[in-house]
Design a protein around this nucleic acid. Structure first.
Lengths: 239, 239
DNA sequence: GCCGATTTGTCCGTATGTATC
DNA sequence: CGATACATACGGACAAATCGG
């Protein structure tokens, strides 16, 4: 009920763009018209338009209007498969069957080297999980998860075999707020080749993910090592 | 003078975070204090804070405050080297000497296959450039540029050897507004191996870049094929 | 558990600046 | 030059979340 209005406008306009109500290269109605349509203030309209611009759906042109620059991909995109949280969602979208196999489940104490790599404090108790993620039975990424035990207590191999995020959000009631990722490409390791059928590929795509909860503590560091064939990331750069 | 005030606040607070004036995990002064400090309205402060949140520098917590979550990487990051426009900037930042070698310069007409790949209209006249970009003499990426000739006229190999973007912005007076990128990892081609010293790497990191000018037309499609060693991208995901 | 103070989230109406045509 | 449309900023109002007494 107390749903933010600017999000409704954002979704509505976005949908209209995808439905060609506002076609590629056309101009949106001027802000004052949108104010009338949605019966809200100009600020609220502008906030929604700002979000659409961030998504590269529209391009505001000073003194001219707001142009639609989104167009449906001609070659249907594979989508973005990056990081843990999008894995199941990605599978669903593309009509594939996801599966997860837990290869390692242990608790350990963060030493200096691990601290430098992950950003956790030295001496922190961590749950370390290695999982192989597959789509339609084909292994496509290896996840190396490190969870801060004090923030994510009660993890079990059984939970790890499903969705750890669902556990975190529903069971622990913890909200996930921010996450930042870094993407690199590195030579594959023996473990990569053991779990992924890399064939001629000598590399894997690596995304590092650091996730913060609503208490401001980083509670997860994950390194996802993806088969190049299944790696595809879409980024929109701002102005 | 007509410089946007929210950007000044954004930069100032960002700098203070990097300088540990506002340390990791601490709270920023409440918005009302910042309003007093910068002698502006709350909206203006909030806009700057919003940008910092988008950059994953801070994490606003409803009813509590705004927490700093940025921390200096312990292992110095290589930085982000993605796409053409950041190439010279990247080199400058890291104190390296950039150089560019034009390997191919031709004009061609967009056929069906190229249209599907790039998004240009079939039949459009394009300038096609292949360039090898090096840092300190070491080849690190191969750029395949396609420019819409009607939007970017007068390109010459001489210009391509320098910065095409500078030509576009200063000579043509064209503003670059939006660009969207897609990142994948693919097997290297013979051409990749000819220009890049890939060693044991059988793959290259590929970024596709589509750039729109202020007239709303896509005037550039670029595929950048990067040496894995020099590829590093940082992405911040929103909420 | 309730209440009030603090702080962020959302929204409004208005004013002024600036770019385009 | 004037009309239109986006950009920035202000000040105020109320809602919602958090925390301490």
């Amino acid at each position: 009920m107390p749903k933010a209005m600017f999000e409704d406008i954002y979704r509505d306009v976005k949908q209209k763009i995808q439905d060609d109500v506002y076609p590629y290269q056309s101009f949106l109605p001027p802000e004052k018209d949108l104010v009338a349509v949605y019966s809200c203030s100009r600020n609220t309209v502008r906030r929604a338009l700002q979000m659409l611009a961030d998504d590269a759906y529209v391009q505001p042109l000073h003194g001219k209007g707001v142009r639609v620059i989104w167009q449906r991909s001609k070659q249907p995109t594979v989508g973005s498969l990056v990081g843990v949280e999008s894995f199941e969602e990605y599978a669903k979208k593309n009509g594939r069957v996801p599966s997860t196999e837990v290869k390692l489940f242990e608790t350990l104490t963060c030493d200096q080297e691990l601290s430098a790599r992950t950003g956790f404090e030295e001496g922190a108790e961590l749950t370390h999980v290695i999982r192989v993620r597959s789509l339609n039975g084909e292994a496509c990424q290896v996840d190396h998860n490190f969870f801060l035990e004090s923030a994510v207590p009660g993890l079990t191999p059984r939970i790890a075999a499903g969705s750890i995020y669902r556990y975190i959000e529903t069971e622990l009631g913890m909200r996930i707020l921010t996450s930042s990722r870094s993407i690199t490409v590195e030579l594959s390791t023996d473990m990569d080749r053991m779990y992924l059928d890399l064939g001629p590929y000598s590399c894997v795509a690596i995304t590092e993910n650091r996730v913060f909860n609503s208490n401001g503590v980083m509670f997860e560091y994950t390194q996802t090592r993806s088969h190049p064939k299944t790696f595809n990331l879409h980024v929109v750069s701002r102005r």
